[in-house]
Design a binder for these strands. Structure first.
Lengths: 414, 414
DNA sequence: TCATTTCGTACATGCTCTGGACTAATTAAA
DNA sequence: TTTAATTAGTCCAGAGCATGTACGAAATGA
């Protein structure tokens, strides 16, 4: 019904085809124009013209002659130019801020996390500190000859992405904050408009790019920090649902008779498998202020107890894993992924939680389905969402390089 | 990662723009070329050319002069031509077969349901009966001057859509059946290749087109028959997940301690809210053979008991509603729809089940979210999936009318 | 040294959208 | 009744982009 098929004009066609060629270059890295013509179906002429435009924009580089086949003139390989354009990823979380710079070649050029207790702090202050971080990142990029083309901010809450506002970020204590405007005020104007997205979605994207590798196509990425969220990736695309609130794993009911949750529901997963719940059940005081992720945080204390075989801690984590597995089985039945990736605090707890997760997952998914399902653990650090945010900028450029090219590429607007 | 951006050539551009114009015509029905130019952004020249092509293909019709504004030359209105091309929808279900013909103007031209106990019957026999039904439908369409351009079959099971095979349809007793080939053998070659899809997905599509109206954008459509399935529609598109098995609501766990299910899991929704479970709990023998949907079926008996205030029946339906609401709350948290539509047997049971569904739904979704959520009941009959199947054919044509147009529209393949 | 093979570019061609001029049909005003 | 204004739709040149053939460039092998 709501089909949104947009008109295609010459400019759109060109823009699209630039993206096709750039994408294929990125996928096959040093690759000749002839081979590009082969795989895209374009004529050699068209490929040459598209590559020339990409080269002029600094997005692509000629690597010099390479012998591809056995006879014949050697090809001049082209590859993505990672030394000119980069994306900036930013992240606001409850107990830290993060920034990272990712170049078009997918190399991380800068990465910085600072601990900060943002719980209840005024949004202006938080965004102020974040823009400081962003400025330093942009400067660092500049030192390496990189131009930062755009930025995305990861925020832990429900967003109105179109309006650039945060509706609610309960763990930050934010309500209806114009984060976009605040950020725009502090950042230099970039070529691409700054954007924001949910922390869980971006962490999932980070996993796709830097985690278990490009083999992952469709998966549920659990990103438990203070809350429990999930990013749903289907065929390499983040699935956001109708309003962008999909993947709220933390509020899936795992025990209808359970305790009431702040969300208004009852027996939500977060009540059992959220960080606070786990710590409480394990008998550890949850002191925010010392960074959760840091070596002195309560999470480290929990892991230490687990290592020592402390029974209450083990039971708490087991119970959390069980509930998580149950909620995930619903996600599997409804969203049909290949893989489940445990991220956030669960990647640290995985050695003790995984068996319970696995078992509950098995009980909640059919035999056939369960056999095809993989359960993996994220190897990414706490700033997975910042990485994903930067990846989103790069992805956006790769999907529409014309955004960064001179006017001729899109002559008639749109 | 897996981005699938396809090259765009002139033919693709044209094909796309034909779809844009056709879609806008369909949306605004009698509409002038001038207005089309306005809303699409094309020049008047381009619109004229596109409309001419659509008219030549018989997809669009000129309605005669209409005074649109107040001054100036009156416009000649164009609208979708519903009298030339139609789509055929077919449905195989446990206790009936259905066919329907839908013209491009979205009018149902033919609709036929026959009761049949397909449980355990040989697939060849079932498909044979279905092709008979299809032939009669095609003949009926021909009598009305319509050409059937394509067909889609709704099947109650997990499908390998690309390969045209049914993997498993437990309630039919089918395993790895080449339904596509069987059907192709019996049907005349249509302009578009015949396709198949899951019954739940198509029922959801049927609801989108013929149910509570175009207002619905994103919703979960529960289609309980023998099993319990759900079709997920996000922004007017069916969401199929990675392998096409999304929306398996029937196997979401509602009670981890519950009875084992045939799927290998434990405490699945289907064990509580499936038709058999409800009937058993209500003390009614589940005799398949008499059509479930018919006036003498066990479902009618259940409704009669409910009308009489029979307590075991009321309790069974209440319990089913509760479990359904709980499973649906997971779907809401994960997929983020606007609306829940109760279809299948639940539309008949809604008067007694809805309060329990509503309550469980409220307990499992945050306050904010729950306030925005609507719970409605399908007004469609048993053949919702057949309607949806026909709608899918029509949608496919509307999305790419060039498929039905002479070669000139796509000169270079693809 | 020359045929063969493969890579990349040049130039003419064709398809499709754009834009301004023009014709057509109607209402409002003179 | 005539004339100006307004809106609809078509005609025709023009521009953007991909296609296709021809051709020069750079390697291998005989």
């Amino acid at each position: 019904m709501r089909n949104e098929i947009m008109p295609v004009r010459h400019g759109t066609m060109r823009a699209r085809n630039l993206a096709v060629v750039l994408g294929e270059i990125s996928r096959r890295q040093p690759v000749s124009r002839a081979r590009l013509a082969d795989v895209t179906g374009f004529t050699k002429t068209t490929v040459s013209s598209l590559v020339a435009a990409l080269k002029a924009a600094g997005l692509v580089r000629e690597d010099g002659p390479v012998r591809d086949g056995e006879r014949g003139r050697p090809a001049t390989a082209v590859s993505v130019n990672g030394d000119r354009v980069a994306g900036l990823g930013l992240e606001v979380n409850v107990d830290y801020l993060a920034a990272c710079v990712l170049d078009l070649g997918r190399r991380i050029r800068h990465r910085h996390i600072v601990a900060a207790d943002n719980r209840g702090r005024a949004p202006e202050r938080v965004i102020g500190a974040l823009t400081d971080l962003a400025e330093r990142a942009i400067a660092a990029a500049g030192d390496q000859g990189l131009t930062v083309a755009g930025a995305v901010v990861a925020l832990p809450g429900t967003l109105d992405r179109a309006g650039g506002r945060v509706r609610t970020a309960p763990n930050l204590g934010w309500h209806d904050v114009a984060a976009g405007d605040l950020l725009a005020a502090g950042l230099p104007r970039l070529a691409l408009p700054a954007d924001q997205d949910n922390e869980a979605n971006l962490a999932a994207l980070g996993e796709l790019w830097f985690g278990d590798g490009p083999g992952l196509g469709s998966y549920v990425h659990v990103s438990g920090e203070i809350g429990v969220g999930a990013g749903l990736v289907v065929d390499g695309r983040v699935f956001r649902g109708a309003h962008g609130f999909a993947g709220e794993l933390g509020h899936v009911v795992v025990d209808p008779a359970g305790p009431p949750c702040a969300c208004g529901g009852r027996g939500c997963l977060e009540q059992v498998a959220g960080q606070e719940a786990i710590l409480r059940a394990a008998g550890i005081p949850d002191t925010v202020g010392t960074s959760t992720a840091g070596p002195d945080g309560p999470l480290a204390a929990l892991v230490a107890l687990l290592r020592d075989g402390d029974e209450p801690a083990l039971a708490a984590v087991r119970r959390a894993g069980e509930a998580l597995g149950q909620a995930l089985s619903a996600a599997v039945n409804l969203v049909d992924p290949d893989t489940i990736v445990l991220g956030g605090i669960f990647s640290a707890l995985a050695p003790w939680a995984s068996p319970a997760v696995e078992e509950a997952l098995g009980a909640g998914t059919g035999v056939v389905r369960h056999a095809a399902l993989r359960l993996t653990v994220s190897r990414l650090g706490g700033d997975a969402a910042a990485l994903g945010a930067a990846a989103l900028v790069v992805e956006r450029i790769m999907n529409d390089p014309a955004l960064l090219m001179e006017a001729p590429a899109r002559p008639h607007g749109r």
